[in-house]
């Protein structure tokens, strides 16, 4: 469990940014992961006063505020309308409803954990993240960037133009962290896929077709850890990519 001396509900994104420049301070998402650490914080910065808990349609983009909970993502009618059960599939396995009512999408994306279901799901969609200082940048770029002290405020998800994407994951128990996550979406010139739980952060692959994705996936490195070995993960990458692509080729969701 962490300790903290101060707790500030930021009055503006700029204030949050200012406070976050100090290394001893931290932005508080849902608190679920933060408490696993034993760090001593000076000030916890709470973004819940900034109306960042809304999911909004803005033209051909759906905007998620950083404080939108994973449960909101899971159950949003707006997301469901455009993406079918994609966003429910990438969130429903995360611990439990109570956890998902706490955990925020901003927290998940900013942490960029390698096993992150939401990051895996968002990566192939051509999303942008919005940061207080850096402004809007592609998620693909953000996902690979080193951690800095900027503050994530929004995630902008373009509406799917080429059919609904597909999400797959394998877990040892249904609400455990995933052994491997896989998301595939159609793009203008082929397919984009993300694999998480692999090694390091989730990474984006592009290919003309299924075989192209699988070939690339087989070249990636995979990790041995408590949940599974690298060979199994590599095997699953192939299985899940094939399954996801089969669903994409089959048109709508299975």
């Amino acid at each position: 469990m962490y300790t903290a001396r101060n707790y500030v509900v930021a009055a503006s994104p700029e204030e949050a940014w200012e406070l976050n420049q100090k290394k001893a301070n931290a932005i508080l998402g849902g608190g679920c992961w933060l408490r696993l650490g034993r760090r001593r914080y000076d000030t916890l910065i709470d973004l819940s006063g900034l109306s960042l808990d809304e999911i909004r349609l803005e033209g051909d983009t759906i905007s998620l505020g950083a404080m939108v909970t994973l449960r909101q993502v899971e159950t949003s009618p707006l997301l469901r309308e455009s993406f079918g059960d994609y966003f429910s599939r990438c969130t429903r396995h995360i611990v439990g409803v109570q956890f998902r009512n706490c955990a925020t999408v901003g927290g998940s994306v900013a942490a960029r954990f390698g096993f992150s279901d939401p990051v895996t799901a968002l990566l192939p969609l051509g999303c942008q993240v919005e940061l207080v200082k850096a402004g809007r940048i592609p998620l693909e770029q953000y996902a690979a960037m080193p951690y800095d002290r900027d503050v994530l405020t929004h995630i902008h998800i373009p509406l799917p133009k080429y059919g609904r994407p597909v999400y797959e994951s394998v877990r040892n128990t249904q609400t455990d962290l995933p052994v491997l996550t896989c998301a595939v979406a159609r793009e203008e010139n082929g397919l984009a896929a993300a694999l998480g739980g692999r090694s390091g952060r989730p990474s984006l692959l592009r290919g003309a077709d299924r075989d192209g994705l699988v070939e690339q996936a087989m070249k990636l490195s995979y990790v041995d850890n408590l949940r599974a070995g690298a060979d199994y993960r590599r095997h699953l990458a192939k299985v899940l990519l094939n399954r996801a692509c089969a669903q994409l080729e089959g048109g709508e969701q299975l």
Binding site: N172, T173, Q174, T175, D176, L226
Partner: peptide, 16 residues
């Protein structure tokens, strides 16, 4: 011991 929490030592949930 590495499986020293409910995060790492997975007992069945009602889905199992």
């Amino acid at each position: 011991l590495l499986n020293d929490s409910f995060l790492q030592y997975k007992i069945p949930t009602r889905l199992e």
